Amino acid sequence: MAVETIAVGAEGVYRPQHDSWLLIDALERSGAVVGRRVVDLCAGSGVVAIAAAELGATAVTALDISPCAVRCSQANALAAQVEVETRLASWSQALEHEPFDVVVCNPPYVPVGPDTVAGAVPAADPMGAWDGGPDGRRVLDPLCASASDMVADGGALFLVQSEFADVDRSLKALRDSGLDADICATQRIPFGPVLHAQAGWLRDTGRLTEARTEEQLVVIRADKR
């Protein structure tokens, strides 16, 4: 896709990685965004929002709390020659608008140990882009609980996360909110700098066996009938 060829990164902005591309691939294979209103939560560089526009969405909104990310999204959308409305806003502010046909999100989901501080992983992206709190659920829990209110009837949520942030808990929360939720895509990838830095703590808390150096990424699709 054209989105892969533009300058999607910027200093202080989450760079598109395996999770971004897995989410885009799931959207493309689903055909769910064609002719639909889409919102990209925790948009970062805007790469997923741009992909949605290229895939035929009629309107795309990208939300992020980082001014750097909003500027990056705007620049990338301009470079890709697509219409994306970018807003400086928390993911939860999507609830202030009419429900969207498709909600996509690549939230912070990495479980972070109590001794981790900003700048502790110098080769990685900004900590706010991946810090999911002690269990990785700081954003995932409230997002899953309120997802049904963001999605229009007949619409869907596409959410990417790591196995280490408890996929079953996300599925249960989405189903409890009234959505039909299932895994629609998976990918196993080597640890990046963030998980390498957290590996000792993940082992100490029983979430990682000594020999593991890979994680499984999962895209969940949750439909509102």
Score class of each variant (00 low, 15 high):
Met127Gln: 10
Ala152His: 02
Ala129Trp: 10
Trp130Ala: 06
Leu140Asn: 03
Met150Asn: 03
Asp153His: 08
Trp130Gln: 02
Arg138Thr: 13
Ala152Lys: 05
Gly133Tyr: 10
Asp141Gly: 08
Pro134Ser: 12
Cys144Met: 04
Pro134Cys: 06
Asp135Cys: 11
Asp131Val: 14
Arg137Pro: 08
Cys144Leu: 04
Pro126Lys: 01
Pro126Ser: 02
Arg138Glu: 08
Asp141Gln: 15
Gly154Asp: 13
Leu140Met: 03
Ala152Asp: 15
Pro126Ile: 10
Gly132Arg: 15
Ala129Gln: 06
Ala145Ile: 00
Gly136Met: 12
Gly154Tyr: 13
Val139Ser: 00
Asp153Val: 14
Leu140Gln: 06
Met150Gly: 06
Ala145Met: 02
Leu143His: 04
Asp149Ala: 13
Asp141Thr: 15
Asp131Glu: 07
Trp130Gly: 08
Ala152Trp: 08
Asp135Val: 11
Pro126Gln: 00
Pro134Glu: 15
Pro134Ala: 13
Pro134His: 08
Asp141His: 15
Leu143Ala: 01
Ala147Leu: 05
Pro134Thr: 04
Ala129His: 06
Met150Val: 05
Gly136Ser: 11
Asp141Asn: 14
Ala129Glu: 08
Asp131Leu: 10
Ser148Tyr: 13
Trp130Thr: 03
Ala147Gln: 04
Gly155Ala: 05
Asp131Arg: 06
Asp153Met: 14
Ser148Gly: 11
Asp125Glu: 06
Ala152Val: 15
Pro126Phe: 07
Cys144Pro: 03
Val151Trp: 02
Asp135Lys: 03
Asp153Gly: 12
Gly132Val: 13
Asp141Phe: 14
Arg137Tyr: 08
Pro134Lys: 03
Cys144Ser: 07
Gly136Glu: 05
